[in-house]
Every structure is written in structure tokens, then in C-alpha cells.
């Protein structure tokens, strides 16, 4: 029974194993970045950046068709351009980061939809927006695993300045010149993981696997390490469960994975011991004065 429901789809079909590997790579690479996005109160920045990469991927598609390399490079260029331009505007003008990012990503998104609509087909647009996790080829898997490895390595190197940049940016600026480097490297990690994610889950769903497990893990762990471990575990479980649901009930796999992550989030929100609804409602013991 369990074999049929859980193991057999992966044992029998190569595309399921590839999808699983791709999702595991995204879970390992993107979810820790999502934890920092959440802790920096930038959860919606991931969504904005996901929209911002669209015109780059569309131009890549126009130039070379459904080419992994061209769409990846295009997405990276568009995402980094929006991140750098909005960062530049924030630092040299009176406009705050949320407004400047919103302005650039909306322009970018409109441009992307225009390019895809005039030159592509609806099928192509659906590919970019919702990904094709069940059709990952070797090149796509290599890209996803490379991005995950690079992302984890960079986060490990950047961990201390990133924690300072999140918790006390004023202090980091006073003791080090790494503040701007940290900020832009972090945004580059966000863009890189979204570009990797959109091959499997699409530009919109890629943000889901980044943010939902992170938000869920916030209710289970008090420290950053625990949050990252919890978020990666939740992302992996969501991936396996979502793929199986998609297989058994013929559902689109990207949304299925993200919806399972959403269920994890809802359960965590209610039952999570760190600030969850039940934990807050129950009478709590307290320490002596």
C-alpha cells in the first residue's frame, strides 16, 4: 500500500525521480535564502524579484527558443538589473526601497508580458509562469544542483555579515564596509535561486518554495539554525508530497507542491510551539521572578 502510493511512482518513472531531485535542490538552495528574506521583512521582495526576471527569460526565449542557458542568463540579467537599479535609487534618492523596487519590477513585468504575448504563445507563457517540474532534463538538473551548491556555499561565507545586516545594519556599517556587498550579494542569491526555481516551478511558484517553508519554520524554532533546518525539511516534505499528489490525482505539480507547503504553513500557524495560535491560547507556565 505505502509502496504503491509513495515509493513506486519514483521507482518506476525517471521523470518523477528527476522532478524529486530538482525539488530537493531547490529546497536546499532557495529555502535558507527565504528564511533570511523573512527575517529581513522582505518576504514580498521575493515575489517582486520573481516578476522582475520575466522579461529576461522572455528575451532569452525569443533569441534561442526554449533554451535553458539563454532563459537562465536572460532571467539573471533582468533580475540583477532590477535589484541593482532599485538599490541604487534607494541609496541616492529620497525614494524608499519598497517603492523603488515596486516601480522597477512592475516595469519589468509589463515588458516581459508584452514580449511573451507578442512573440510567443500561451503555452510558452504558461511554461515560464508555472514551470515544468516533470520535464526536467539533465542540463536543467545540473543547473538546479549547481545553483543550490553555490547558494549554500555563499550563504555559509556570508552568514555573519548577513545576520548583522538583518539585525543591526547601522552597526555593520559602522564596523565594516561589507554592508553594501552583503546586501547586493544577498539579492543576487535571491535572483539566482528564483531563476533556478522557475525552470521547475515557474516564476510565481518558485517564490512559494522560498517563503512558505520559512514562514512555517518560524513557528517551530527560536534560533536561525533551527529555522533553516526546519524550513529545508518542510520544503523537502512538501516537494515529495506535492509530486505524489500530482502523480496520483493528475494535478499540475508546481501548484500541488506549493499548496502542500501552504498546508504545512497553516498547521504550523495553529500548532507551532513558538508563537503559534494554540501555544498562545493555552495557559502557559512561567518562571520564578
Amino acid at each position: 500500500m505505502i509502496w504503491d502510493a509513495v515509493i513506486q511512482p519514483f521507482a518506476d518513472f525517471g521523470f518523477m525521480r528527476r522532478a524529486l531531485l530538482g525539488c530537493v535542490a531547490i529546497s536546499v538552495g532557495a529555502t535558507p535564502v527565504g528564511v533570511f528574506l523573512m527575517l529581513r521583512r522582505m518576504s514580498l521582495t521575493g515575489d517582486a524579484m520573481a516578476h522582475a526576471i520575466l522579461p529576461g527569460a522572455a528575451v532569452g526565449y525569443l533569441v534561442a527558443g526554449l533554451s535553458l542557458g539563454a532563459m537562465t542568463i536572460g532571467g539573471l540579467i533582468a533580475g540583477m538589473a532590477v535589484a541593482l537599479l532599485s538599490g541604487f535609487v534607494t541609496r541616492v534618492t529620497a525614494l524608499r526601497e519598497d517603492a523603488s523596487l515596486a516601480a522597477f519590477y512592475l516595469i519589468s513585468l509589463a515588458l516581459g508580458v508584452l514580449i511573451v504575448s507578442t512573440r510567443g504563445s500561451n503555452v510558452d507563457l504558461m511554461h515560464v509562469l508555472f514551470g515544468t517540474v516533470l520535464a526536467l532534463d539533465n542540463a536543467a538538473l545540473t543547473l538546479l544542483c549547481s545553483i543550490a551548491s553555490l547558494s549554500v556555499l555563499t550563504l555559509a561565507l556570508l552568514f555573519r555579515p548577513l545576520v548583522l545586516e538583518c539585525a543591526d545594519p547601522q552597526f555593520l556599517r559602522s564596523v565594516s564596509s561589507l554592508s553594501a556587498v552583503t546586501h547586493f550579494t544577498f539579492l543576487a542569491l535571491v535572483v539566482m535561486n528564483l531563476v533556478g526555481g522557475f525552470h521547475a516551478l515557474g516564476t510565481l511558484m518558485a517564490v512559494g518554495i522560498m517563503i512558505l517553508p520559512a514562514a512555517a519554520a518560524r513557528f517551530w524554532a527560536a534560533g536561525i539554525g533551527g529555522m533553516i533546518a526546519g524550513a529545508v525539511a518542510i520544503a523537502m516534505l512538501s516537494s515529495v508530497s506535492g509530486l505524489l499528489l500530482s502523480y496520483h490525482y493528475s494535478l499540475p505539480s508546481g501548484p500541488a507542491i506549493i499548496l502542500v507547503a501552504g498546508i504545512f504553513y497553516a498547521v504550523s500557524l495553529v500548532f507551532g510551539p513558538v508563537g503559534g495560535l494554540v501555544a498562545q491560547a493555552l495557559p502557559r507556565r512561567h518562571f520564578e521572578v
Binding site: 545576520v163 539585525a167 545594519p169 547601522q170 527560536a222 534560533g223 536561525i224
Partner: peptide, 18 residues
């Protein structure tokens, strides 16, 4: 007025160690 985000998961030791 410190810009420290007091909701960030840091302990006293983490803060002082900075």
C-alpha cells in the same frame, strides 16, 4: 535610536559578540 530589529532571533551573547 538603535536600528536593531528586536524581533530578530538573537541572544544576548550573539549581540555582545558582534
Amino acid at each position: 535610536q538603535s536600528e536593531i530589529d528586536r524581533s530578530f532571533p538573537l541572544t544576548v551573547v550573539d549581540l555582545v559578540a558582534m
